[in-house]
């Protein structure tokens, strides 16, 4: 079992004929993900990957023709907000946006638009979702994890892979891994994901990987204290980051003294969350 994506996922790939889109579609198919359609405006009627996936001109046409229930977005940053609106307006309830570099003002409009509808966005600037053995939606390498009972949620990409792999090496698997992304304004928060893991009968323990910037980890700590019965182990990246500098991710910045790793670690520890000193310590804290 899992959250958000599984073997019932019927996936649409927006931007399927682009370099990233086609490359990752191939990997998602190879993993066993049910990729049923792609969209590239102007390329409707074509088939990609040896006739495995039909391409449509718009999300609505793809949706009507194939009954997709999830969309993953690989279109460039300048078109990505529009791609999210297109999926939302076609009524797709779950949208995963991989694209990095979407302007923040675009994302504020997107988020406020989606909040008025019953639509979940994961990302942007995220590696996507992986439910080991069932579905891989996005760019998380499939072979670095295995099915298990640990829910993983993270703002990062490769740091998450590192943790999934370290878990696999000691025989621990994931129920679902959720990359919520490194942008300051995103679709799904730590709290949203923690709530889903708490409700998922096949998730027994949770790993939360945070980083500097914003107050999502602090809010997560409050939520954990009030709502979670399952144990949470955390790691927060960026203790050595200088203030006022954006550490790669648009959202990873300490501003006016707010968003420091120290504050986040303190908040998490104060509610009984075990915080790893470094990523390799996480598996032993889950034992």
């Amino acid at each position: 079992m899992s959250i958000l994506v599984d073997k019932n996922t019927r996936l649409l790939v927006q931007g399927i004929t682009g370099n990233e889109g086609i490359f990752h579609t191939e990997h998602m198919l190879a993993y066993g993900t049910n990729v049923v359609a792609g969209v590239t405006p102007g390329k409707g009627g074509e088939w990609v990957l040896d006739g495995k996936v039909p391409v449509f001109d718009s999300v609505r046409i793809a949706h009507d023709a194939t009954g997709v229930n999830t969309s993953v977005i690989f279109v460039p940053a300048r078109f990505a907000a529009d791609a999210i609106y297109e999926s939302a307006d076609a009524g797709i309830p779950l949208i995963i946006c991989i694209t990095e570099g979407i302007p923040v003002q675009d994302m504020m409009r997107v988020r406020n638009y989606l909040d008025q509808r019953d639509i979940r966005l994961v990302g942007p600037n995220c590696p996507g979702l992986l439910t080991p053995g069932e579905a891989k939606v996005g760019i998380i390498p499939g072979d670095i994890s295995m099915p298990g009972n640990i829910g993983v949620v993270s703002r990062s990409g490769t740091l998450t892979y590192e943790v999934l792999y370290a878990l696999k090496l000691v025989g621990l698997g994931a129920s679902t891994c959720v990359g919520i992304g490194g942008d300051p304004v995103n679709g799904t928060s730590f709290i949203d994901t923690l709530g889903m893991f708490e409700a998922d009968p096949h998730t027994d323990k949770i790993v939360l990987i945070g980083e500097i910037g914003g107050t999502d980890e602090e809010k997560a700590a409050e939520y954990i204290a009030d709502h979670l019965t399952k144990p949470v182990v955390a790691f927060i990246a960026g203790r050595s980051a200088p203030p006022g500098k954006r550490m790669g991710h648009a959202g990873a910045i300490v501003e006016s003294g707010s968003g420091t790793a120290e504050d986040k670690i303190k908040a998490l520890k104060s509610v009984g969350v075990q915080v790893a000193a470094h990523p390799e310590e996480i598996p032993s804290l889950l034992a």
């Binding site: 990062s156 990409g157 490769t158 740091l159 490194g182 790691f235 990246a237 980051a241 990873a252």
Partner: peptide, 17 residues
């Protein structure tokens, strides 16, 4: 020299640690 922003931060942290 690291691939990924989160991993790059974690690498700096562990050097300091």
């Amino acid at each position: 020299m690291v691939n990924g922003a989160g991993l790059a931060m974690a690498t700096m942290d562990i050097i300091k640690l």
